[in-house]
């Protein structure tokens, strides 16, 4: 039987992997993928709790997060295309236009 604790452990591991990806990787697309991983880790935790408390609210929340994440990915990728046209790279170390 799968306990809620197992789900939470999986969620935590995925979240940490995602966070590490955002912090370590330089490629913007990979960073975006890592952010998606973090979001889905949270989704997993929500579903785990929804199952434990037999409350559908958590699952509804997950649907919302997925919808927003899809929109976010669309905007993010569009921004990357625009940035790439200017800088010919997606290395975040080299994109530092917002510096003082």
């Amino acid at each position: 039987m799968i306990q809620t604790m197992h789900v939470l452990w999986l969620s935590t591991i995925l979240f940490v992997i995602g966070t590490a990806g955002v912090l370590i990787r330089r490629n913007a697309i990979v960073m975006l993928m890592s952010v998606e991983l973090m979001l889905n880790a949270v989704n997993l935790a929500l579903i785990g709790f929804a199952r434990q408390f037999r409350d559908v609210t958590g699952q509804v929340y997950v649907i919302f997060i997925m919808t927003v994440a899809a929109a976010e990915v669309a905007i993010g990728l569009a921004l990357f295309v625009a940035v790439f046209r200017h800088k010919r790279t997606l290395d975040t170390q080299k994109i530092d236009l917002l510096r003082w």
């Binding site: 912090l23 960073m31 170390q93 917002l98 510096r99 003082w100």
Partner: peptide, 17 residues
């Protein structure tokens, strides 16, 4: 304080974490 504005996404993400 303006030196903390590196303009790099990574450093900001690190700050957030």
């Amino acid at each position: 304080v303006s030196f903390s504005h590196t303009g790099r996404v990574g450093s900001y993400a690190f700050g957030i974490v």
